[in-house]
């Protein structure tokens, strides 16, 4: 039996018009239920409100209407129970890799010895052994995002929110990062909400793919992905994968065309 961990209830968002312009309707009333251990990828054309939805869940933005419940409690602001990885590199440049990963633990007041243990385990999991004392600037983009994932996970959040975390990486690195993240999810059974506009990425990672329509965004399709675990990158060439990809490509194409028409 699965339990609902996150419930998005009729959440909509309208941004006030800039300098007397017309208000922007970024998100139509949206409903979504996330079960424990779900890996949900949110797929949609640029500007459809994916980031807006994720930021509302993170508590960094407020919905104009509706509400978000985490384990039955309404979300009022950001907190350590929802870990977030941003598309831009947001490691703290004045902290070393190890200190970055330990940031949330320090804020929580976890004692030093325990902190070091947790940091060591996550540095290992994301493959950054030997870089503990480097500063973010000394690391490649992929390594920085791995650190950001470790930093979010070290807090042991109820749900992990990722906003196109691999968007700025090259294809090879991106593929490796997907496998790494999926490996962690398979082992630790986290609940994940992952925004992307890469169709292959969305299928490869997901247990459910949510397709959003062009602006104003709303959920257009909710497609379960029943590919077996553990998944290996070779899966991307199987017929099952290809047929899912064809289906999603069609869904997204319609939206992309519409999005262009809107602009």
């Amino acid at each position: 039996m699965s339990t609902t961990i996150l419930q998005i209830d009729n959440v909509s968002r309208v941004f006030p018009g800039v300098r007397g312009g017309v208000p922007v309707r970024a998100l139509e009333p949206t409903n979504l239920q996330v079960e424990q251990n779900d890996f949900i990828t949110i797929l949609g054309p640029s500007g459809c409100g994916k980031s807006t939805l994720l930021r509302i869940v993170a508590g960094l933005d407020r919905p104009t209407d509706g509400r978000v419940l985490l384990n039955g409690r309404e979300i009022k602001g950001p907190g350590a129970d929802r870990g977030m990885v941003f598309q831009s590199y947001t490691l703290f440049p004045w902290l070393t890799i190890a200190e970055n990963i330990a940031y949330g633990l320090r804020e929580k007041g976890v004692p030093k010895a325990q902190r070091q243990e947790i940091v060591a385990s996550y540095t290992e999991k994301v493959g950054l052994r030997g870089f503990e004392n480097h500063y973010p600037k000394q690391l490649s983009g992929g390594m920085q995002q791995r650190t950001a994932i470790a930093r979010a996970l070290a807090n042991d959040p109820e749900i992990l929110l990722l906003d196109e975390p691999f968007g700025a990486l090259d294809n090879q690195t991106r593929g490796l990062m997907q496998e790494l993240l999926l490996g962690i999810w398979e082992r630790e059974r986290k609940t994940v909400l992952f925004v992307t506009h890469d169709i292959e990425e969305a299928i490869f990672l997901a247990s459910r793919v949510i397709v959003m329509s062009a602006r104003p965004g709303r959920i257009k399709a909710d497609i379960p992905v029943e590919l077996p675990h553990p998944r290996h990158y070779t899966m991307k060439t199987t017929p099952e994968f290809s047929s899912l990809k064809a289906q999603l490509t069609e869904e997204i194409r319609v939206e992309a065309i519409q999005a262009e028409g809107v602009h």
Partner: peptide, 21 residues
């Protein structure tokens, strides 16, 4: 924003982000 999602309080953001940054 990253600090807030990692559990920083308002004071924590001043002390551990605004000042060192």
């Amino acid at each position: 924003e990253a600090a807030y999602t990692l559990g920083s309080s308002d004071k924590g953001v001043v002390r551990r982000v605004l000042i060192p940054a």
